[in-house]
């Protein structure tokens, strides 16, 4: 068993922050390698860089509010 701790932090309205992840596997089997100590995984589906968050949730909120 790995001694390394992996934690997931919920950011409501934003991504999941994951510390200690090595890779994120997509539904189609594509593997994205985590290259930084903390990664943000998109939850709103709007990111152009899935699985990573690119802050597009901010644009979404803005357009929702402007509607």
């Amino acid at each position: 068993m790995s001694a390394r701790r992996v934690t997931v932090q919920d950011c409501p309205g934003g991504p999941l922050l994951i510390r200690g992840a090595d890779e994120v596997v997509a539904a189609d089997g594509t593997v994205a390698e985590a290259t930084r100590p903390v990664v943000a995984v998109c939850r709103c589906g709007r990111s152009a860089r899935l699985p990573w968050c690119d802050a597009s949730h901010r644009a979404k909120r803005r357009s929702n509010r402007d509607d």
């Binding site: 932090q9 950011c11 934003g14 991504p15 922050l17 930084r36 903390v38 990664v39 943000a40 860089r49 990573w52 968050c53 690119d54 802050a55």
Partner: peptide, 15 residues
């Protein structure tokens, strides 16, 4: 900076 600052945004605001 696109990916890094998407992480930093959460770290800076929340943590």
């Amino acid at each position: 900076h696109v990916e890094a600052d998407a992480v930093h945004e959460q770290l800076a605001i929340r943590n």
